[in-house]
């Protein structure tokens, strides 16, 4: 599935499919909270403690929360599959996004440092996140859901190449 903004002639590595259940869990918790809050007027009204609240609005709120969260959750598999990265000779390419797509190229010679972080949930799934920092604050080059050994390999690779390219400002 090549998107129109992807540079031609490149095969992106995809991140681990285990990121899908991981994101389901993290987003699911948030979604549950939103849905609970959204359906609060409906529950209170049905229980009779908030009779004055208009019934249609209460239903609308609950359904809107449910739909929005359902939509977000339904998008996760495709969003995860849209994340990709490719190592070239001089730079690293990262792509992400489904509706709002972004392709970013980060030169090895411009990387200041590389972060590898593992949260408790990520550890349970055997995943890690890699974040590359340049001197620019707008370089938001982060890769989630890499298998731990792939993250370690990428980190070593990036620092070795950064050194070879004489990283500077």
């Amino acid at each position: 599935m090549r998107e129109p903004i992807d540079p031609p002639g490149l095969d992106f590595h995809r991140v681990s499919a285990k990121l899908i259940p991981l994101r389901f869990i993290t987003l699911g918790i948030g979604a549950l909270v939103v849905i609970l809050i959204g359906s609060l007027p409906l529950v209170l009204r049905t229980l009779g403690s908030w009779q004055k609240f208009p019934g249609a609005l209460a239903w609308a709120l609950a359904i809107a929360a449910l739909l929005a969260m359902g939509w977000r959750l339904a998008l996760i598999p495709r969003q995860v599959r849209a994340i990709g990265y490719a190592e070239r000779d001089d730079d690293l390419l990262i792509r992400r996004g489904l509706f709002f797509q972004r392709v970013m190229v980060v030169p090895y010679g411009r990387m200041q440092y590389v972060d590898v972080s593992v949260g408790p949930l990520e550890r349970a799934f055997g995943l890690a996140s890699v974040k590359m920092h340049t001197a620019s604050a707008s370089t938001n080059a982060a890769l989630e859901g890499l298998p731990t050994d792939e993250a370690a390999r990428l980190r070593e690779q990036l620092s070795a190449r950064g050194e070879a390219k004489l990283a500077g400002l």
């Binding site: 903004i5 709002f100 392709v103 970013m104 620019s136």
Partner: peptide
């Protein structure tokens, strides 16, 4: 002086 580049596309 280029740090990094990106392309962005909304719906």
């Amino acid at each position: 002086r280029t740090q990094s580049l990106s392309l962005f596309q909304g719906p």
